[in-house]
């Protein structure tokens, strides 16, 4: 009888350690944070070229992440890249906000940086950010550098 009691306890500990490990993975490894449950609203921005931006890339103001890219598509009329992003609804942005695509580090991932302007009008949810700056494509830059006419300088 004593023996089965020990066995039961060990099985209980085993199952409990599995549950603890699962919660550890959820909280500590994937950071299943309340961020995904927070209220967000969507903004759109048209870029001439969205470069290596991906779904889930960070959207930040002054280096602080306030949202994520939700969807990237091509506008069928202007052939621009349309980027939809989820912004944490704590943050309301003025309507002359600039959206630029930057790269974190030399080889790092690309992200959207928002720079709020001074306007008193705020962008409504599902609004569009008008002032944008495209991603810098390395090949274009090198091309411009190589084929620059030196006599023009």
């Amino acid at each position: 009888m004593q023996n089965t009691k020990i066995q039961d306890t060990l099985v209980g500990l085993f199952v409990a350690s599995g549950i603890v490990a699962f919660f550890f993975m959820a909280m500590q490894i994937s950071n299943l944070s309340p961020f995904s449950h927070e209220k967000v609203y969507t903004l759109k921005a048209h870029f001439e070229n969205s470069g290596g931006l991906k779904v889930k890339s960070p959207v930040s103001i002054a280096g602080v992440r306030i949202g994520r890219v939700r969807k990237i598509s091509v506008d069928k009329d202007s052939y621009d890249s349309v980027v939809e992003m989820d912004i944490n609804s704590e943050y309301i942005l003025p309507d002359d906000t600039t959206a630029s695509i930057f790269t974190a580090g030399l080889l790092g991932e690309q992200y959207i940086s928002l720079e709020p302007g001074g306007s008193n009008e705020m962008i409504k949810p599902n609004g569009v950010i008008d002032i944008t700056q495209s991603a810098i494509v390395m090949e274009e830059m090198i091309g411009q550098f190589l084929f620059k006419d030196p006599s023009q300088e």
């Binding site: 085993f14 350690s17 599995g18 490990a21 699962f22 550890f24 993975m25 500590q28 490894i29």
Partner: peptide
Amino acid sequence: ILTTLFSSIGV
């Protein structure tokens, strides 16, 4: 259970 334990302890 064993797999989640393995991954967590590996991290």
